[in-house]
Simulated assay, not measured.
Amino acid sequence: MLGRGTQLLAGALVLACMVLVGPSAPGDTLFARSLPVDAVRDVVPNRVMTWNICNPCEESNADRAAEIATYAPQVIGMQETCVRDIEGIRDYLKRRHGLVYHVKYGTVLQSWGRCGGVPWSPGGFGQAILSAAPMTDSVGVEYPDGGSEDRGYMAVTTMVGGRQVRVFNTHLAQRRQEAVRAKQVRVLATAVARHERAIVLGDFNAVPDAPELSPMWALAVDTDAQCQPPSIGECEVTTDWHSKFDYVFLRGITPLRHRVQSTGHSDHHLVYADLDPA
């Protein structure tokens, strides 16, 4: 039998390893949620999703993967992501749900506090895009002014509904930083305007009639048919604090169906849309 001193040392080593790994994967192997009976069984080729997964939050990547697998979009834009979280989510999607995704990262911050890791090799924090089809021409852009935290956008070219399209994913400055977001939207809109067909996913941290979103509304429509300028209608909320901050903007593409699904695994809801790429 092990002596008491050896047991204490082993326990201390386990605890140290848990601290170094960080908060990104608590209980993943123990509390995986099974899919509902009406869950999608394969990737839906014309479906796109945006989801701010909340970070730092004590959530299971197995549960996050199960949420995504329920709706199985072709493309997912995720915000507030750590690289190790996305690696875990993608692994669960493949091993437990048979859904294979490619991944690209739009890391804007190396954050030990948010993403765990070790001080000399902190986890990357920012955005990520998962796509069932390969992605090309990936770019990551950090906004000149991130506000209270570094922010940016990423873009890839991939297939949605059998057609090639440019997909953007962004996370704008936090609430009460309207002037900063206005500058960020101008940078993003300039990039989106170069493409006749584009999908812009993300957490814009602004309600639909916020003045800083005007450049996006001039270029694209949101998939929520009830939520369009000039007179904003009944916009479906996408956050736990009853605001619409999350968007699926379309340029040169027609929306077919829009849905917001609340989840217990983030303070933002899942937002997804089925599109008519033709």
Results as ranks from 00 to 15, higher is better:
residue 121 S to Y: 10
residue 270 L to Y: 07
residue 260 V to A: 14
residue 196 E to Q: 15
residue 24 S to L: 06
residue 67 E to T: 01
residue 129 I to F: 11
residue 60 S to D: 05
residue 132 A to M: 13
residue 60 S to G: 07
residue 271 V to L: 12
residue 33 R to K: 15
residue 251 R to A: 08
residue 202 G to D: 12
residue 82 C to H: 00
residue 24 S to W: 10
residue 148 S to H: 09
residue 1 M to P: 15
residue 275 L to H: 05
residue 251 R to H: 09
residue 253 I to Y: 07
residue 150 D to C: 02
residue 30 L to S: 06
residue 250 L to R: 01
residue 191 A to N: 08
residue 260 V to H: 11
residue 12 A to S: 14
residue 133 A to H: 08
residue 243 S to C: 07
residue 19 V to K: 03
residue 95 R to H: 11
residue 25 A to F: 14
residue 42 D to C: 00
residue 19 V to W: 01
residue 260 V to P: 10
residue 266 S to N: 02
residue 18 M to R: 02
residue 200 V to P: 09
residue 125 F to G: 01
residue 235 C to N: 08
residue 216 M to T: 04
residue 248 V to L: 14
residue 203 D to C: 13
residue 25 A to C: 12
residue 271 V to E: 04
residue 231 S to T: 09
residue 9 L to K: 04
residue 76 I to C: 09
residue 234 E to S: 10
residue 225 A to I: 11
residue 123 G to K: 03
residue 75 V to T: 07
residue 48 V to Q: 13
residue 209 D to V: 00
residue 80 E to M: 13
residue 32 A to E: 10
residue 26 P to V: 13
residue 179 A to K: 15
residue 157 T to P: 11
residue 153 Y to T: 09
residue 122 P to H: 08
residue 33 R to S: 15
residue 51 W to C: 13
residue 60 S to E: 11
residue 218 A to L: 09
residue 6 T to Y: 00
residue 145 D to F: 09
residue 21 V to C: 10
residue 268 H to E: 03
residue 133 A to I: 06
residue 9 L to C: 07
residue 131 S to Y: 12
residue 105 Y to W: 05
residue 39 A to D: 08
residue 247 Y to I: 04
residue 99 L to N: 13
residue 141 V to H: 10
residue 204 F to H: 11
residue 77 G to D: 02
residue 234 E to R: 14
residue 42 D to F: 03
